[in-house]
């Protein structure tokens, strides 16, 4: 495995370096635009005002913005107004300010329309297009249902992703799976995303893998001396692993936890 891994890493690096130099060689000299980071939403007739102007009213949000992952792309003093910061997602704010503010008044709210999130997070757009996905592109959910884009959750222990309780965002809707059990599946302590890709997957129920490899990477196997039978713990599993995966075979079906069985069978 290690040699394959080395090959794939080297291959990836070579591809990236080659792509970098090829694209560098095609640089146009006749360009005048500023830093190329984000293409903000358009608001007809509005111009960019900068984060400081937003701070006059949205002080608590702008105050903590530097701790947000989005601040990693914000060059506040380098001519990148509009390409990063508040207006890169909400659109140019001059008309919104002139109108005295107000929800949705000359301003774009990604909480209502995730299009501006997808402008940068194209890998997530691709996942939402797979057969098994949360319905964000269908407008039945939006990104802020699960994510806090401003970083406020650093001071909110009750919810969110930045510095908060594990699985809290998922448990908001999936109470059946996140509830308390007598016998919990310890994988839940490491988070729902150990087994699920919440944006979308090629596999049913948005699983990151569809077969027993999903379980066996943690529930390590051993080979019985002599016969070569696969044992997981003290129980032979060679035959049952042919019937399907650990859960589709109808054995360990209570994958999130069980009220009665420590082996999660019912």
């Amino acid at each position: 495995m290690s040699q394959k891994k080395l090959h794939s890493i080297c291959g990836g690096l070579i591809t990236v370096v080659a792509a970098f130099w090829i694209s560098l060689g095609s640089t146009s000299c006749g360009t005048t635009t500023k830093v190329a980071i984000v293409r903000p939403p358009e608001i007809e007739g509005a111009s960019f005002a900068g984060n400081d102007a937003c701070s006059d009213c949205h002080t608590t949000i702008v105050d903590v913005f530097p701790s947000s992952p989005h601040a990693r792309f914000h060059m506040d003093d380098q001519g990148s107004i509009g390409s990063s910061g508040c207006e890169s997602c909400h659109g140019p704010g001059s008309l919104h300010i002139k109108a005295g503010g107000g929800k949705g008044i000359f301003i774009h709210n990604p909480g209502d329309d995730s299009a501006s999130c997808m402008e940068c997070h194209q890998e997530i757009h691709a996942k939402f297009s797979l057969p098994n996905h949360h319905p964000v592109l269908e407008d039945l959910m939006n990104c802020v249902d699960c994510h806090d884009p401003h970083g406020r959750d650093m001071s909110k222990p009750s919810g969110g992703l930045a510095f908060a309780r594990l699985n809290q965002s998922c448990a908001e809707c999936h109470q059946e799976q996140a509830r308390t059990f007598v016998f919990e599946h310890e994988a839940m302590r490491e988070g729902c995303t150990e087994c699920h890709d919440p944006h979308g997957s090629v596999n049913s129920k948005m699983l990151i893998q569809r077969d027993s490899n999903l379980c066996l990477k943690c529930h390590s196997q051993i080979q019985f001396p002599g016969s070569g039978d696969i044992f997981i713990g003290k129980a032979p599993h060679s035959f049952s692993m042919q019937a399907g995966s650990c859960w589709t075979a109808g054995c360990h079906t209570q994958v999130h936890g069980s009220m009665v069985d420590p082996k999660m069978r019912f």
Binding site: K5, E123, S220, I222
Partner: peptide, 29 residues
């Protein structure tokens, strides 16, 4: 995973560390 000594039907399986799984992925966009 590191496992301890196991007694399987009277046969002792030795303790040791196992590489139980490996994942790698590469995405180009």
């Amino acid at each position: 995973t590191t496992i301890g000594t196991l007694n399987l039907n009277g046969v002792t399986y030795p303790a040791g560390s196992l590489l139980a799984g490996n994942f790698d992925s590469h995405t180009y966009r």
